[in-house]
Computed example of a mutant assay.
Amino acid sequence: MENFPKPKVVLSKCINLEATRYDGGIIKDEFSKKLGEFVEYIPVCPEVQIGLPIPRDPIIIVKNNPDKLIQPSTRIDLTQKMKEFSKEFLQSLKSVDGFLLKSKSPSCGVKDTNYYKDFEGREPVGKTSGMFVRHVMEMFKNYPVEDEKRLIDKGIRELFLTKIFAFADIRNLKDNLTKSNLIEFHTRYKLMLMTYNQTNLRALGKIVANLKENKLFDAYENYAQIFRNSFNKRPSVGAHINTLLHAFGYFKDKISVKEKAHFLDIIEDFSKETVDLHTPIELILGFAVRFDEDYLLKQRYFNPYPKELRRL
């Protein structure tokens, strides 16, 4: 059984937790509910926490210089209140690994909030990020920030899960920091880093190769910053195939011709997207168990997050 550290995730309070929506409603989301079994949620409702009631008249983002957060029915400008709350709340977070927020919300929407050119909210001119999210992205660069609707997409969901569990792992390392633990951490993440960002893998390798006990904390801080900057986009199919073939190299002289041909056929199927990534991964893990290849069995690339979350 894989032992995963528990990510800390800021969650919009209206998702499964409390009826804090502008219309007094609550959002039921099965993914967020299941994820809650494996993470620690930090609930937030920026609109309620700046003093707006439940229910309340809607608020909107108005395109301006700078943009404004306005309640059309009262013409109240809430921009400064939201800015002050956002900065205070985010600065109060002692530790966090990601954000799961409400789609389309003028405070929490990640990319799909309506953007208006008039203070009455009559004419949307496009989509934008909510006002709270803008501060999140400014203060927590490279951290995973998603909403419940975007996570319906399998690729976005897998990247989000990979990041929150990797970020929890690097955060947990800080509480148990030794030279050997940092080296072991880097070893476990080599194949994942090879897949996501080979430039950063080389930079992190240099940090680990030059560790000094009297500067271990500084080395960790440098390592953690580069590590968190390594997962900014989903890897290509080609990047995954490169990693899978690298891992397969550990067994190519130990298995039969038929086994080798079968594995390469699976890789071909994966390249054509007729099988998913877990199919070649399970073959690699089977070989690793058979030949007791401990290095590969410990690679986080093969088990980036709890298996129960794959089925969502």
Rank of each mutant, 00 (worst) to 15 (best):
L159M: 08
D292M: 12
G98N: 11
E88H: 11
G126R: 05
A239H: 05
K252L: 05
V125H: 08
D269V: 00
K63H: 10
F119P: 00
L11Q: 01
N16I: 09
S271I: 01
H240W: 09
G109K: 09
S86M: 09
Q225W: 04
Y295P: 00
C108K: 03
D29I: 05
I15W: 09
I59F: 01
F231H: 09
V9G: 03
G25V: 09
A19H: 14
G109T: 05
G155W: 05
L161R: 09
I27Q: 06
Y116E: 06
H246A: 08
K63P: 00
R310D: 13
I61S: 01
D169L: 02
V136L: 12
L277Y: 11
L244A: 03
F38P: 04
S103L: 00
T20S: 09
L90R: 09
I42Q: 05
E2H: 07
D57Q: 14
R290D: 11
S32Y: 00
S92E: 04
K28T: 12
F185Y: 15
G155A: 12
R311S: 11
G155R: 15
L193G: 02
R56D: 02
I152E: 12
P124G: 11
I164V: 13
Y223F: 13
K252Q: 12
V237W: 06
S271N: 15
K272R: 15
K111C: 02
F85S: 02
D29S: 06
Y116F: 15
P53W: 11
T199N: 14
L204T: 00
R188S: 07
F185T: 00
K174Y: 13
E259T: 03
Q80T: 10
F31E: 07
P124K: 14
E40K: 12
I61F: 04
L35P: 02
C45V: 02
F263N: 10
N3W: 01
I281S: 04
P72R: 04
K179L: 08
L101Y: 03
L193C: 04
K190V: 01
A224G: 08
